[in-house]
């Protein structure tokens, strides 16, 4: 193996490895260093630095771009946990700038104007073959309604289970119809899971929402608008972290769900005018 391919291989291993370290954790969207500190103190395993949270991006409309590197720097300086930032899907120059800014993880995101999320197995595997070290099974961001994240997680789980039952010749057919390599699909059949970490996201507003995604097989949870659009962000953030660790323990879930103050208002799925999940498909 040449030195550069060995380096590339190591890079993939290191990036997938970082994602493994985030498992069982909550990644929170933050827009200011103050919010980043609240998130870290509440137990976030990483923060996503962005100028506006999805609910506000949704309200504002227009083109939403990579955040100002100065604003990202402020957040990097405020916390010791990993900092992620978003670039538009396929905008590799925004990604290069974020890399130069020493960002821990770059998120090609559908929340910004068309971006690295998945709604089904084919999409997830294509992202992985493009180099994604972590997948987010997305719902509809900025709505406070977890229903679509649930639907997509269930779908990916069902598709993975189906792949584990396929014979060799069926697997070949499946790889053609999904447009993914046979090698990647074989890994899924062998392990019964995606080859990288898969977080749930989109519309998480309560500890129960977060635990639901975990019980459905998510490795961890992203929370965007659900925290800093609520009445008591600090308390809610702590509660969601506790719920993700103890997602199978209804007594702890009961305990942390008490007295959280107002949740974000939310939009029901049939009232959504801008469907972000369809971006970048």
């Amino acid at each position: 193996m040449t030195e550069s391919t060995q380096q590339e291989k190591n890079q993939t291993e290191l990036n997938r490895g970082l994602a493994e370290m985030l498992k069982g954790g909550v990644i929170m969207d933050v827009t200011t260093p103050e919010q980043a500190k609240i998130a870290e103190a509440a137990g976030a395993c990483a923060v996503m630095a962005l100028e506006r949270i999805p609910a506000d991006i949704r309200a504002a409309g227009g083109v939403s771009r990579m955040s100002d590197p100065a604003m990202i720097r402020g957040i990097q300086d405020a916390v010791s946990i990993p900092v992620m930032a978003k670039c538009r899907i396929g905008h590799f120059v925004e990604a290069q700038i974020l890399e130069a800014a020493d960002i821990d993880y770059i998120d090609e995101s559908e929340v910004l104007s068309p971006a690295d999320d998945a709604r089904n197995l084919g999409e997830a595997l294509r992202r992985i073959s493009e180099g994604a070290s972590m997948i987010r099974t997305k719902g509809e961001p900025g709505t406070g309604d977890v229903i679509q994240a649930v639907r997509h997680l269930r779908k990916i789980n069902a598709e993975i289970r189906r792949v584990t039952t396929l014979s060799d010749d069926e697997l070949y057919e499946e790889s053609k119809s999904l447009g993914v390599s046979l090698e990647l699909l074989s890994l899924v059949r062998q392990n019964g899971r995606l080859p990288v970490v898969n977080f749930g996201a989109g519309g998480v507003a309560t500890p129960a929402d977060a635990a639901l995604l975990m019980q459905l097989g998510a490795d961890g949870v992203f929370v965007g608008s659900g925290i800093f659009k609520s009445g008591d962000p600090e308390k809610r953030a702590r509660a969601i972290v506790a719920a993700v660790t103890n997602y199978r323990d209804p007594k702890i879930l009961l305990e942390v769900s008490r007295d959280l103050g107002a949740a974000m208002v939310g939009i029901n799925e049939d009232e959504i005018s801008l469907i972000m999940e369809e971006r970048g498909v």
């Binding site: 370290m21 498992k23 954790g25 870290e40 103190a41 395993c45 990993p82 972290v241 506790a242």
Partner: peptide, 12 residues
């Protein structure tokens, strides 16, 4: 993992 998170949950 993240020591800040684990340390906090150990206490909590």
């Amino acid at each position: 993992g993240e020591s800040t998170v684990q340390g906090k949950l150990l206490r909590d």
